Computed example of a mutant assay.
Amino acid sequence: MDLDAVRTFVTAADTGRFQDAAAELAVTQQAVSKRIATLEKVLGVRLFTRTARGATLTIDGQAFLPHARGLLRAEERAVASVRPDRRALRVDVIGRRLAPAAQLGDFRRAHPEVELDVVTLFDVDAAVDAIRAGTIDASFRAVTMPGKRLPDGIGAARAFDEPLQLLTGPSHELAAARAVRPAELAGRRIWMPGLVPGTESAAYYDDLAAAFGLTIEITGPDFGTEPLLDTIADSRSLATFVGEQTRLVWPADHGLRRITLRDPTPVYPHSLVWHHDNPHPALVTLRDHFRSGRFGQTEAGTWTPAWA
């Protein structure tokens, strides 16, 4: 498909007049008409209806427009993929409400000159595959899981440790506690329906459960964060684990409690993962940022799995 024709179509759709599209693209109005006519021939539909006020999209034009914009974005990404000095640094943060996203926000404030493109991938395998393929530059992951090793050329360094907290509703037996020891949770119901077996998160919580005699339930449908919070808020027996930096929002009447875990404090080990041959200059800035002082240092009185 002729991307010049697609670009002309999108410009005409945005301006509403072929004449204005021609001016924006620095071509003649005749060239605009010819490109759109060619595109209509390729697609086998009419994209515009001419009116006295300009040109309006047909139903088919309206249907094609978001896909046309996607084609142009794909073109931009394709060009940028071979020009690392001109494109944003692409970083996987697992989830936009989780700690890596918050840490990346801190990095952005410390380095406003670095343009970021933030993505979320499913698990460490998907992240490593994307790093190897060059579709992302770096990822925050808990590495390495039992039975796994990073492929040749992939580097990883501990970036930061995130303390876990216990989240309960107001009527839970531990709701009034200021802090709880992990061993005190043995025999209590910890519900985490979003855990997917085989992922790095599941590996972490499997080891946590084994270390302190916990039972972590992953049964039941995972409808997302809001239904989970609704259930926890109304329960006297269910609780869940959340990261200290996980951003959660709930109605005031839920009365949820975030309770500190200590003696020891379980921490989730986030590592920065990248490819050694990646030439993006901002990747060096990102790595240096997380090498500085306060990052990647596990404090006394904390717990992480041996594999981390």
Rank of each mutant, 00 (worst) to 15 (best):
residue 13 A to T: 05
residue 17 R to W: 00
residue 17 R to F: 01
residue 17 R to I: 01
residue 19 Q to Y: 03
residue 29 Q to T: 13
residue 34 K to V: 04
residue 36 I to E: 09
residue 37 A to R: 06
residue 39 L to S: 07
residue 41 K to G: 03
residue 43 L to A: 09
residue 48 F to W: 08
residue 51 T to Q: 08
residue 53 R to M: 04
residue 55 A to T: 12
residue 67 H to L: 04
residue 68 A to P: 07
residue 69 R to M: 11
residue 74 A to N: 14
residue 74 A to S: 13
residue 77 R to G: 09
residue 78 A to G: 02
residue 78 A to E: 13
residue 80 A to S: 12
residue 80 A to I: 00
residue 83 R to L: 13
residue 89 L to F: 06
residue 92 D to A: 07
residue 93 V to Q: 15
residue 95 G to C: 04
residue 96 R to M: 06
residue 100 P to A: 00
residue 100 P to W: 05
residue 101 A to H: 15
residue 108 R to G: 02
residue 109 R to G: 03
residue 110 A to E: 14
residue 110 A to Y: 01
residue 111 H to W: 07
residue 118 V to S: 05
residue 122 F to P: 09
residue 122 F to Y: 11
residue 123 D to G: 13
residue 124 V to I: 01
residue 131 I to P: 15
residue 134 G to N: 04
residue 142 A to D: 07
residue 148 K to P: 02
residue 149 R to T: 14
residue 155 G to P: 01
residue 156 A to W: 05
residue 159 A to N: 11
residue 164 L to V: 10
residue 165 Q to R: 14
residue 172 H to P: 12
residue 179 A to S: 15
residue 179 A to M: 09
residue 180 V to P: 11
residue 182 P to R: 13
residue 182 P to G: 03
residue 183 A to V: 14
residue 184 E to H: 08
residue 187 G to H: 02
residue 187 G to I: 08
residue 189 R to H: 05
residue 192 M to H: 08
residue 197 P to A: 02
residue 203 A to P: 12
residue 205 Y to F: 15
residue 205 Y to W: 14
residue 207 D to N: 05
residue 209 A to L: 08
residue 211 A to S: 13
residue 213 G to K: 14
residue 217 E to P: 02
residue 218 I to Q: 06
residue 219 T to N: 06
residue 223 F to G: 05
residue 235 S to N: 01
residue 236 R to E: 12
residue 236 R to F: 02
residue 237 S to W: 10
residue 241 F to W: 11
residue 241 F to H: 04
residue 243 G to M: 04
residue 245 Q to H: 11
residue 245 Q to Y: 06
residue 254 H to C: 04
residue 255 G to Q: 10
residue 257 R to V: 05
residue 257 R to Q: 14
residue 258 R to A: 01
residue 262 R to G: 07
residue 264 P to Y: 10
residue 268 Y to I: 10
residue 269 P to L: 11
residue 274 W to K: 07
residue 276 H to R: 12
residue 288 D to T: 10
residue 288 D to E: 15
residue 289 H to D: 06
residue 289 H to Q: 11
residue 291 R to D: 15
residue 292 S to M: 13
residue 292 S to R: 12
residue 292 S to W: 14
residue 294 R to S: 10
residue 296 G to T: 08
residue 296 G to H: 14
residue 299 E to P: 04
residue 301 G to W: 15
residue 303 W to I: 00
residue 305 P to N: 06
residue 306 A to W: 08
